[in-house]
Amino acid sequence: MSYDLKEVCKDIRCDIMTCIGHLGVGHIGGCLSVVEALAVLYFKEMNIDPKNPKMEGRDRFICSKGHAGPAVYATLANRGYFDKKELLTLNQGGTNLPSHCDMNRTVGIDMTTGSLGQGFSCAVGVALGSKLEKDGATIYAMIGDGESQEGQIWEAAMFAAAKKLDNLIAFTDYNKQQIDGTVAEVNDIAPLAEKWAAFGWNVIDVEDGNDIEQVEKAVEHAKLGRDSGKPTMIILNTLKGCGVKWIEDLGSGNHNCPVSEEQAEAAIREIRGED
C-alpha cells in the first residue's frame, strides 16, 4: 500500500498541534521539524506491522531526541498502532504517552529515550543485535543537533563505524536551534558532515529536510549503503517548528513553549491550507 506522504505529513503535524494544544505546552519546535523523516520511515520505508508491533526482524526506529515523543506518537497513531483519541492523553498523569519516549509504556516505541545521547548508543546496540541475529533488519535513529554536543554521541559514532554497522541509518535533525539560542551561538557543531565522514560514516546532506521528496531520496540512497561496511548519517537541514509560521518565528523559543487550543486550531487550518 502506498500513501500520499505530503498528506501524511499534514495529518501528523495536525495531530501534534492537537495533542500539545490540548495539553497547553510541549516540545513543539523539535516535533514539527522531524515530521517528514517520520512519514518516510513509517509510511514507506520501514518493515513494520502495526498489528504486530513486536514482530521479529522488524525494522526499528529509535528517537534519541526523546522530547520529540509527541511527533512519534502522532505518527504511530496515524499508522494504526493505537487509537488517535489516545493522543489527547499526552503527558496527563497515568498516560501511555509521556513527554519522552518510553518502550515500556507505548505500543510501537522501540527504546526508552530522553537523557540525550543515550538513545543513540542504544540504537547502536540494537544494530549490533540485529547483525548478530542476522535478521536483515534496518535500524533507524534520530538525534538532535543540540544533542550532538553530548560526548556519548561521538562514542557511539566511533563504535558503530568500528563494528561496521551498515544496517544503521541515522538522521540529525539539524534545525540549528536549541534551548539557549542557536546551535552556532551555544556550542557550534559545524562542520557536521565533515565530522561524521571523519568518524567513518557515509554522509548524506539533505538541503531541505522538510521536503518530502528530498528525504525519500536520501533514505533510498542510504539503503544502497547496506553492504558498504559503514553506517549512514543523513543530515536533515530542517526548520524548527516547520509548518506553522508563528512557531517557526519563535526560533529557539519554540523548544518547549505554551500552545493554546485556539492557537492549535489556527495552526491546523494553516497546515491544511485553509487560511
Binding site: Q118, G119, F159
Partner: peptide, 19 residues
C-alpha cells in the same frame, strides 16, 4: 567498546532490547 563506559552501558541496553 574501548574507553567509553557510557556508550557501553547504553549499547548493552540496546542489545537487551534485542533479546
Amino acid at each position: 567498546c574501548g574507553v567509553a563506559e557510557q556508550d557501553m552501558a547504553s549499547i548493552a541496553a540496546g542489545l537487551s532490547s534485542y533479546g
